[in-house]
Computed example of a mutant assay.
Amino acid sequence: MPFAAITYDIKPGYEKEITEIFTGFRRVGSPVVKGDGGEEAARILATAVFIRDDTMVRVIEYEGDLDAVARHMATQPGVEEVEKKLAPYLSRPRDTSSVEGFVATFRRSLLTCMAQMSVRDS
Score class of each variant (00 low, 15 high):
90 L>V: 12
66 L>G: 04
108 R>K: 15
91 S>T: 14
55 T>H: 12
90 L>Q: 04
45 L>R: 11
112 T>I: 13
74 A>P: 03
28 V>Q: 03
53 D>N: 11
41 A>Q: 08
62 Y>I: 01
34 K>L: 15
107 R>H: 13
107 R>D: 01
54 D>I: 03
104 A>T: 07
80 E>V: 14
82 V>S: 01
106 F>E: 02
72 H>E: 05
86 L>P: 04
61 E>T: 00
31 P>R: 10
98 S>L: 12
82 V>W: 02
105 T>E: 02
111 L>A: 11
47 T>S: 13
77 P>G: 12
94 R>W: 07
74 A>Y: 00
47 T>M: 06
80 E>M: 10
68 A>W: 00
64 G>T: 12
30 S>I: 11
67 D>A: 10
39 E>T: 12
33 V>L: 02
28 V>W: 04
52 R>P: 00
45 L>F: 02
112 T>K: 14
59 V>H: 00
78 G>T: 05
92 R>F: 10
113 C>E: 15
93 P>W: 14
34 K>D: 06
70 A>V: 06
89 Y>H: 10
86 L>A: 06
75 T>M: 14
32 V>S: 06
69 V>T: 05
66 L>C: 07
51 I>F: 04
108 R>E: 14
57 V>F: 04
92 R>G: 07
100 E>L: 10
36 D>C: 03
45 L>A: 07
42 A>S: 05
112 T>W: 09
71 R>K: 15
43 R>M: 06
91 S>K: 14
64 G>W: 04
93 P>D: 09
61 E>Q: 14
112 T>Q: 13
61 E>D: 11
106 F>I: 08
35 G>M: 09
29 G>H: 10
75 T>G: 13
54 D>V: 01
39 E>Y: 10
90 L>G: 06
79 V>L: 05
50 F>Q: 10
66 L>V: 12
52 R>K: 13
67 D>V: 10
94 R>F: 08
60 I>V: 15
58 R>M: 11
70 A>Y: 00
30 S>N: 13
104 A>I: 01
100 E>P: 01
52 R>V: 09
56 M>W: 00
104 A>W: 01
69 V>E: 00
68 A>Q: 02
40 E>S: 11
65 D>Q: 08
98 S>D: 07
47 T>D: 06
94 R>G: 00
55 T>P: 03
81 E>R: 08
29 G>M: 07
85 K>E: 09
109 S>G: 04
107 R>Y: 05
79 V>T: 14
70 A>Q: 00
99 V>R: 15
77 P>M: 11
92 R>L: 11
77 P>A: 12
91 S>G: 14
67 D>P: 02
50 F>S: 10
67 D>Q: 09
54 D>M: 08
38 G>F: 05
55 T>C: 13
45 L>C: 10
47 T>E: 09
94 R>L: 11
31 P>C: 08
96 T>N: 10
